[in-house]
Nucleic acid binder design. Structure first.
Lengths: 193, 193
DNA sequence: ATTATCTATAGATCTATAGATAATGC
DNA sequence: ATTATCTATAGATCTATAGATAATGC
């Protein structure tokens, strides 16, 4: 139907953006090409002028989801520290909030895609690993001087990811809230000591 | 081809057992009926004499995976404390071992199915939630007397699940090992204090 | 005779491709 | 003329069903 090259770039980015949200919400395997294109306002046939295959898109969508969510949580892309550096207390509060739990589509991709990436391609695992290192670096700096030494950044990230993942899986709102609040308080305690 | 009722029961249980391993390894959405029946040594047509639908099997397979892995990690079925009660140190060591990380098919279903269950049916979420309560109860008893009070069981479970999930997703063996060892040491520290 | 499993297949869905369509941009 | 998207479809796969087959168990 004839579209400018500028429109093509905009469409390309909208496809990736839409996919980045869909995979965080529904997982990697649930994403279908026609469903994705429909949500992006296009038809499925045009997809293959943008991406070589469904797998190629998945790789870019995982990358996009990691980048977008990392900058949203105070950790910049691929391990480079963010300029708008948040305090540890702020990171914990935002990460372990009901808002974050209730909107996986725009939330941290490390939590949303953890088990999916473990079953995915090496490319997605490599991108994922780089972002995990970024989070660890950010937490190490914020935890400087805590008693736990090297252990605390790993423990903190594991607990943050685990609490969000459990809070989302569990069927009971009260229990879900408890995972967020108790884990947050426990982590603040570690950071202070 | 004519099979006794005793064989039918054995086949039924083998199908669930096989499915419980397959879903922990590859996720809920990847499981296909024909693939499952093939691995169980049967043909796909017979499946519907055992289960009303693929969804009905998924519910039973999630339940089976939760039951089997819970008893393996010292927490008995549906919140009832195990008779062979392990110490917290033993639970942490076994849960955060490379062996557990490397064999999700027989490992803890709470870690393996976390994001899948969050996207699944209410039935599977209810079963999952009951088992999470079982783990929390077990950890509460083991953490009796720690300084963190109510926070510690939630923090401990979140960190255990998060560390295993991250250790599996990450692409680098050294980093993966660090998640297990640092989280284990951090949690032992919390338990002592 | 009953029934657990197998063979065959219908209907739906999904990835990927081929050719048509209609605006862009030289 | 080029090209970004659309329409139509091929080929594969998946859930579920129907009828055939061959032991079981009264």
């Amino acid at each position: 139907m004839g579209t400018s090259q500028a429109d093509k770039v905009a469409n390309h980015e909208r496809i990736i953006d839409t996919a980045a949200t869909m995979i965080r919400r529904d997982g990697l395997t649930s994403l279908s090409v026609s469903n994705l294109m429909q949500r992006a306002g296009l038809t499925h046939g045009g997809f293959y002028r943008h991406f070589a295959s469904r797998d190629a898109l998945i790789t870019q969508a995982v990358d996009g989801a990691l980048d977008r969510s990392a900058s949203s949580y105070g950790i910049a892309k691929r391990g480079i520290p963010s300029k708008t550096s948040r305090s540890l207390g702020e990171i914990i509060e935002k990460y372990l909030s009901p808002t974050h739990r209730d909107d996986p589509g725009t939330g941290c991709a490390i939590a949303a895609l953890a088990t999916d990436v473990a079953r995915g391609t090496e490319d997605t695992r490599t991108a994922y690993t780089q972002h995990v290192r970024g989070y660890l670096g950010r937490l190490s700096a914020a935890l400087e001087g805590s008693d736990g030494g090297d252990d605390d950044p790993y423990l903190t990230l594991a607990a943050m990811v685990g609490a969000v993942v459990l809070a989302r899986a569990v069927n009971d709102t009260a229990l879900s809230d408890e995972f967020l609040s108790h884990t947050a308080r426990g982590l603040r305690r570690i950071a202070r000591s």
